[in-house]
Design a protein around this nucleic acid. Structure first.
Lengths: 355, 355
DNA sequence: TTGTACGCGTTATCAC
DNA sequence: GTGATAACGCGTACAA
């Protein structure tokens, strides 16, 4: 077992260690301070030949400063956290991509936390924020109660909220223009000749984006002369119930001589609604109109294609990240709310109903 | 503009700093060393009353040791990187979830890198591996040429490959059993009465998983008495071309009195194939059989439902992470290859063709 | 212009 | 048993 001997001396476990600033200094025959200055662009206070030697030593040793050590020194890690409710939701991934771009451009590294819809893991994410000294955090999901994590826990680290707001938190908030999205959808349905709309949404449960869409929906209805509608909350695993509800609702509408359409509140709700419709043997655009918020890969494929209102996910992610980075860099201004418009993509599922 | 004044003094920007081990020591009236011992569970070498005081001080100050400082000390960060070719691919996300579970259970934090199918960003990820002193990395995509990053770059950090292997790298490799998956699919097609199969795959381009599936496909055909087939590589944005190819191929098959089916090589290929079929006005299971590797959200919704062979994504992610963690903890053994089986999910798209 | 010395938060080694 | 102290890699006053 001679290979299990542990030499207690300095470099036993890592065969090839990273080059340090000291190594560079030695190779270039200068002091660590000079190397540091070179790295920080203080070349104006450096003799050209020294800069030259340092430059070569760095290249030769393939040296990169250690962000960890830098973090220890002045509290910044150039790490940004992104906590999403559920990576499984394509919306989250799309926002991630946007945020990633902005972070990369600004020299930050994006760290993903998947909260998996579990409240407890949100606390973990907050702990990680301070433990790993992340410079800031983009938060997509959040317990609906604001009090749970006091700002004191953040140690002054900035936070930007995406998609879901929380009353009583003064943090920047980036979201799609929910009333606008609802209006796009309902204007379109109305123009196509539908007049009875069912909003299928995930359980509202205090989630701000769902509340906002529901309220915009109801407000639109209250002002419309022709549109009527109602709301159905579809929980996780009660597909049959949704299916039954859809059947009853449609029958009543048709018997009343109305033209029914379903509006799905987001991508998940769209999937549930499409599944229920599929299970009933219906075809979107045939027995009823269908429109969904959130564009998805599969929207063009089901039936004659699903009409959707796409969120500007990439822009949302970028805006959130840029917003956060400004805060990190010390911008002091009252909390902002950034609202971006959605875009309608018309397909066959909202073809004008036969009279 | 009085609020734009910058105080250059010490604690202006961060109002509330984290508690340090020194704070705890002072509050508990002991030395930092004792606190450290307490934290590392050396309570057997600690006077009970001291332990008590330290315990209280820690609770009172809400103290947590700084992973960064620990990293500086002994090179481990308890951070694991996961570099995926493309977060947009649901397969990546599913693997991520599995890996996350295992990491969480072992007290590691998973950091996601989205390579966005760009070769350059893979180098960035490798740099981050050493710069942020990640303890290891799970790699999904990799430039097809192995030499590009020499092991020297890793500074002895372990790497585990997922889904895509690279010749000449001795790293652990976790993958679905590709020949088994192909066999499941073709056995099923044959049993249903199909005898002319087109494998639609993303461009092979040296990607090991695609190569493996293609080879297994061809091998199966060469041994089968009834099945014939061919391969079509579908590139990113040439939907029309795929569509045209499908039409020609099917017509030839039918004219020869054969029963055609498409086998899509992964989720992305499934989407492309389904789109082309949709654009041709065909229905899966009607004009031709369709089966896809990778289960997707939308598989049940298109036509009579798409038959798929699901990869054990969660298990793949977990296995990869566990594997890596063993390496991190010093396990020395020759590089392993872990192969997990797939599962077939039969739906209407592979209904027996009418004679 | 350049080098020396110290501190960031931890842990490990040594004396006490 | 316990406490001072030296490192880890880096930035930066301060001294030269």
């Amino acid at each position: 077992m001679s290979d299990s001997v542990q030499r207690p001396a300095s470099p036993p476990p890592r065969p090839k260690a990273r080059a340090t600033i000291a190594d560079v200094a030695q190779a270039a025959q200068v002091s660590k301070a000079s190397v540091s200055r070179y790295l920080n662009g203080r070349t104006d206070i450096l003799a050209p030949d020294m800069a030259e030697r340092v430059q070569q030593a760095i290249a030769q040793l393939n040296y990169r400063p250690s962000p960890m050590a830098q973090a220890l020194k002045h509290g910044r890690t150039r790490l940004i956290g992104l906590a999403v409710a559920d990576v499984t939701n394509p919306f989250s991934v799309a926002v991630l991509q946007g945020a990633e771009k902005a972070c990369q451009a600004a020299g930050y590294l994006l760290v993903l936390f998947n909260l998996g819809n579990e409240a407890g893991r949100e606390r973990d994410a907050m702990h990680a924020l301070s433990a790993y000294q992340l410079d800031g955090m983009i938060l997509n999901r959040v317990e609906t109660s604001a009090q749970l994590w006091h700002d004191a826990q953040l140690h002054g680290k900035p936070i930007v909220l995406v998609d879901r707001f929380m009353e009583g938190m003064d943090a920047d908030f980036v979201t799609v223009d929910n009333p606008g999205v609802i209006q796009l959808a309902l204007d379109h349905l109305q123009a196509q000749g539908f007049d009875e709309v069912l909003l299928v949404t995930e359980p509202i449960a205090g989630v701000s984006s769902r509340t906002a869409r529901q309220q915009a929906f109801l407000r639109y209805l209250s002002r419309s002369k022709v549109l009527q509608g109602s709301v159905w909350e579809s929980a996780a695993h009660n597909g049959p119930q949704l299916q039954q509800q859809l059947a009853q609702w449609r029958q009543a509408a048709v018997q009343a001589g109305r033209r029914p359409a379903v509006l799905a509140g987001n991508g998940v709700a769209s999937l549930r609604a499409a599944s229920a419709i599929h299970a009933l043997g219906w075809v979107p655009g045939q027995e009823l109109g269908v429109i969904g918020i959130d564009e998805t890969d599969w929207a063009p494929l089901v039936g004659p294609g699903l009409t959707t209102v796409a969120q500007p996910t990439d822009a949302l992610g970028q805006a959130a990240a840029q917003c956060l980075i400004e805060r990190i860099q010390g911008k002091h201004s009252p909390a902002r709310k950034i609202e971006l418009p959605g875009t309608i993509i018309v397909r066959g599922s909202t073809a004008s109903p036969k009279r």
